[in-house]
Write a protein that binds this DNA or RNA. Structure first.
Lengths: 204, 204
DNA sequence: TTCTAAAATTGAGTCAATTCTGTTTTTATG
DNA sequence: CATAAAAACAGAATTGACTCAATTTTAGAA
């Protein structure tokens, strides 16, 4: 019945996320003190911890928003991929990368990745792993689509190939966010160069 | 030369590392309090921070020891690789993976990886990136060696291939340390399956 | 409307990493 | 040897994430 309590809860969630997102961007993850987030969201410190297990989970909620957008954008490519294996992969990778810095700064990505390895069993750690899996799955779906279209050999191990492509891209992205001066075009070019080896191997 | 001061310094370094390694293993990274490490090493908290920028750097020193051993073990394979591309890669990957849990527990690896992404510019962050590069380079050297031996096509982009193989392996290793129940044989099998696609593409 | 149990909020208190400042030890010099 | 500068040390103070017991608010029954 969408009672008062439920509405207030949703509203507090939103205020906390908005306050945190703003402060993470302004002051960086470490620089954004929980007290400051609480003050800006007009709730108490205790309330934040009632909603999120720890500071990392707040960042986690923001990351989920970003990655889900990326996944959505990727669906279009899978549905109607460019009629060329190299271009198809490049287009999908491009969408992932170009969307990735929309809400999250490199510093926020670094923190998010760090937390997800540090606490793999926390809510955020598990959510992050699930997001990675979804991305891998989407790449696998693209390969499957390309096989249907007769652009990729039928005898290719699609699952293994999807993992290979995702893992390489992801590792490149990790290195990318670790260096503030790294630029997107160079990242894309490097991944394209790596994928070229695979494209040669799997094309009909 | 080699005055008292230098000797005491080296000795204190050693004691701190030994105390930390023992406590990290016993109590985990978080569980090993700086005060406890200081007590066991018979120095004060302040002294530890005089030697290491932060707790992560202590772990970093231990990780470096481990990875350098791995690199050393790998040299043998590069010098005399198995006469088959798939086996050669599998042997090198195997050495990396089998040695990896010698001194470091999965939990210690998780922390180390997290810190290296979180603080890429700290002494440890930079060292970790350099170690990754060395491993990538060693894989590239193996490929180069296999090309000399006529086992891999000459027109293959060795640098890109080395990165691809390392990045995939590394990402698989990250997922491996994130799950306590994951086992080494399955990890190796999964990587072998992924590399099979590449082997088919690059063999003469 | 009034009352009660459940749910949610609050903020002072705890804990551990890191910083800071005064003291001690070592080295170099006369 | 004495001594002053430099280096290293010690541990108390600070800081900030997180906890928890007390208080307040809400939902629903009478």
């Amino acid at each position: 019945m969408s009672g008062l309590r439920a509405r207030q809860k949703a509203d507090r969630h939103r205020r906390i996320i908005e306050a945190a997102a703003a402060l993470f961007r302004e002051a960086g993850y470490e620089g954004a003190k929980i007290e400051a987030i609480a003050a800006q969201a007009e709730v108490s410190v205790g309330t934040i911890y009632n909603y999120y297990e720890n500071k990392g989970d707040i960042l986690g909620a923001i990351v989920s928003l970003e990655v889900n957008e990326v996944l959505n954008a990727g669906r279009g490519v899978v549905a109607r991929p460019p009629a060329n294996v190299g271009d198809a992969l490049d287009t999908l990778v491009g969408i992932y990368i170009e969307h990735s810095l929309h809400y999250l700064s490199k510093e926020m990505w670094r923190q998010a990745m760090a937390i997800s390895t540090q606490l793999p069993d926390s809510p955020f750690g598990q959510a992050y792993t699930a997001l990675d899996r979804s991305l891998t799955e989407q790449i696998r779906a693209l390969i499957s689509r390309l096989q249907e279209l007769g652009l990729v050999r039928r005898d290719i191990d699609g699952a293994a190939l999807g993992e290979l492509i995702f893992n390489n891209m992801n590792m490149m992205f990790i290195e990318f966010v670790k260096r503030d001066e790294a630029r997107i075009p160079e990242l894309r070019a490097a991944i394209r160069r790596q994928n070229r080896i695979l494209v040669a191997a799997i094309g009909v």
